[in-house]
Design a protein around this nucleic acid. Structure first.
Length: 357
DNA sequence: CAGCCGTGGCC
DNA sequence: TGGCCAAGGCT
């Protein structure tokens, strides 16, 4: 009877074997993923990992295909004008990723002879690669024995071990639990297996525990409380802000400008606008117009929700006959070419509202 | 180190 | 409909 109260959990190595067996039978076929037995392309692995940061697989697929077709190698990407990369990234969000993408490509091309370094430490030193991405590229592209801990893994591990501490405090334990299962070989498959499990079985809501290869070991499942994990801190209330976007028409063209290199939409092409990082009172809006003109507001403001605030942007439109754009970094963009300019989604909404798209 | 940084889809 | 979520990194 001794031990009758102890849950018969398999040792980490057995759990990993069960996970890898499940992965071999259920792995997702993704465009950036090497087929079994084929060598992964480190460039494709890296590019996909950057795009997938806080971004869904469905959204990334189109961007990944376009980038890989246009810039097939890291050298090609390094040689591309940063503006073209930013424009191609438009709509994907978190534009610092695009700036770091190019900076990283240049570094790999120049300092590493066009080959990605294989160690987690060297990868971690590249722009845009944090703890997760460095480990993921090392494991997936080079089979280095590294544990890549992302949101999927955090969910799987907090459930597997019923880790009730809030996520931030739980991170060291989650890492230890992930590393203890790391198989000596197949580190890349292990990383991808955990992500596939998190994406298809161990989902945030309504997890399919009945189909989970780790269910026999899962403390949360045993307690019937899988959905209770991970425990997250309360989120701050999302502020509501107001602002304005200015569309200056000159015949068929509209004035666009280059956003400052950092901050919201850093480096992107956009219409002139009030600051969005704070609420700007309607009475102050015209202070930020690119020039004096007969500015008319469109009837309905454009609504756009960012990660940490919700914006209601009133769109102003005016016509001018001046030949030269009124500001530094300003130029005229033909309405028919606006698609190629690579406008962030908020600016596309404004253009559409003004009838330019 | 908590705040900043996009977007689209889901229920 | 609004909150939550998705393969995080930077400062």
């Amino acid at each position: 009877m001794l031990g009758a109260m102890i849950k018969p959990v398999r040792p980490p190595r057995k759990r990993a074997a069960a996970l890898l067996a499940w992965y071999d039978a259920n792995r997702r076929d993704l465009p950036w993923r090497a087929r079994p037995g084929e060598a992964p392309d480190p460039y494709a692995v890296w590019l996909s990992e950057i795009m997938l940061q806080q971004t869904t697989v469905a959204t990334v697929k189109g961007y990944f295909a376009r980038f890989l077709a246009r810039w097939p190698t890291v050298e090609a990407l390094a040689a591309a004008p940063p503006d073209e990369i930013l424009a191609a990234w438009a709509g994907l969000g978190y534009y610092a990723r695009a700036r770091n993408l190019h900076a990283c490509a240049v570094r790999v091309a120049q300092a590493h002879g066009g080959r990605f370094p294989q160690s987690e430490e060297e990868l971690r030193a590249l722009p845009g690669l944090g703890p997760y991405t460095a480990a993921a590229v090392a494991a997936i592209a080079f089979d280095a024995p590294c544990a890549a801990v992302d949101g999927n893994v955090e969910r799987v591990m907090t459930r597997l071990h019923a880790i009730a501490a809030p996520l931030r405090a739980a991170k060291p334990l989650i890492r230890a639990r992930t590393e203890e299962m790391l198989p000596p070989a197949r580190a890349g498959d292990y990383a991808q297996a955990l992500m596939d499990l998190g994406a298809t079985i161990c989902t945030p809501r309504a997890p399919a525990c009945g189909a989970c290869p780790l269910a026999p070991d899962c403390a949360a499942f045993a307690a019937g409380a899988a959905e209770a994990y991970p425990v997250k801190a309360k989120k701050a209330e999302k502020p509501k802000r107001r602002g304005a976007i200015f569309i200056l028409r000159r015949g068929d063209a509209a004035m666009v400008t280059r956003r400052p290199p950092k901050g919201l939409f850093g480096g992107m092409t956009a219409f002139p606008a009030t600051p969005f990082t704070r609420d700007v009172a309607p009475g102050d809006w015209l202070d930020f117009a690119p020039c004096a003109a007969d500015w008319r507001t469109l009837p309905e403001p454009v609504a756009h929700v960012f990660t940490h605030f919700a914006l209601q942007a009133t769109v102003f439109v005016a016509k001018t006959r001046k030949v030269s754009p009124p500001g530094v970094d300003c130029r005229w963009a033909a309405a028919g070419d606006l698609d190629k300019e690579g406008l962030p989604t908020l600016m596309r909404k404004a253009a559409a509202r003004a009838g330019l798209l």
